[in-house]
């Protein structure tokens, strides 16, 4: 048996396809991206090594990058906080009702499996001045006519502009189902005995939620948080489809859309790679922070 499982030929045969594909299509390109990010590389020309110039430019001169960075960080914080709160509330409510739990659960989860591209377009139409919400507000008499309503996707005032808020809420709408399900899965894993014991000790339902449920699902909070953090840093589809190209003078850009514009609209492959490397570093940092921070705490108790 042991000899069989140490069969070198078999090991290589089993691991090779995945390993090679993984190395060629993921690992080597990451190294290449790092190299390109140190180059002046326009499409149809050869890359030319220029050291850290791209990064210096990104951090000191590129105003759109500053905006994209701000928006991405905002997205991340917004989605971590709101998904945690709403996900927990929904999970708690749904585990406490008897009838229709499945139905509600499935309805809230639906947008998670639909294409963000399609949903982005859908919401773009909803927020279009002449078409969606403003028309409804006008017909209800809340506003004079549809052109007077809020410029949902076009107002560029303020530190975090209105379109970013709107898109944040759409993202919450789309993905809160996933957080909800993660928490529900964890809650349903908690043994009923613990709750019963707590009721005997005189705990109310509310108390048992705060003193039993919350502490016990902490590891899942870490999982959900890092999913949210990385997901929102990589955020592209919704925003690309809700704000048409070139609208708003890049004020609603996030890191991913900035990368796309620089690399594939303006053909600056080296500069785009630098943005990609920064995105990679951000993702790694966030994973480490969340896992260290949330998980160690859960060991403490």
């Amino acid at each position: 048996m042991d000899k069989l499982m140490r069969n070198k030929k078999a090991i290589i045969l089993f691991i090779a396809p995945a390993l090679i594909l993984f190395t060629a299509v993921l690992f080597i390109p990451v190294c290449k991206a790092v190299y390109y990010s140190l180059c002046n590389y326009k499409i149809n020309y050869q890359p030319k090594y220029i050291g850290f110039k791209n990064y210096v430019m990104l951090f000191t001169k590129d105003k759109t990058m500053a905006i994209a960075f701000k928006n991405s960080i905002f997205f991340m914080i917004f989605s971590i906080v709101t998904q945690l709160i709403f996900g927990l509330i929904l999970a708690a409510l749904l585990t406490n009702i008897k009838k229709g739990r499945n139905l509600f659960k499935n309805i809230y989860y639906l947008p998670c499996v639909l294409s963000s591209a399609a949903l982005g377009l859908l919401w773009m139409f909803v927020f279009m001045p002449r078409l969606g919400i403003n028309q409804m507000m006008a017909s209800l008499g809340w506003i004079e006519d549809c052109t007077m309503g809020p410029e949902w996707l076009f107002n560029t005032d303020g530190f975090i502009i209105l379109p970013i808020w709107v898109i944040s809420f759409v993202a919450l709408w789309q993905y809160v189902g996933q957080s909800m399900m993660l928490y529900m899965a964890q809650i349903s894993g908690i043994s009923m005995d613990i709750y019963e014991a707590s009721y005997i000790d005189g705990c109310s339902k509310k108390q048992s939620f705060f003193y039993i449920t919350l502490p016990l699902i902490k590891p899942m909070v870490a999982t959900a948080m890092s999913l949210n953090a990385i997901g929102s840093l990589k955020f592209f589809d919704l925003i690309y489809n809700m704000i048409p190209e070139g609208f708003l003078s890049h004020k609603a850009d996030v890191i991913a859309t900035h990368l796309y514009t620089q690399a594939f609209k303006f053909s600056k492959l080296g500069y785009g790679s630098a943005i990609g490397v920064i995105l990679l570093i951000l993702c790694l940092i966030m994973t480490v922070i969340i896992n260290k921070f949330v998980k160690t705490e859960s060991y403490d108790m």
Partner: peptide
């Protein structure tokens, strides 16, 4: 300009 000029695209 029309009031919604900032948000209208070319087609609209």
């Amino acid at each position: 300009f029309q009031k919604t000029a900032a948000g209208d695209d070319n087609d609209v």
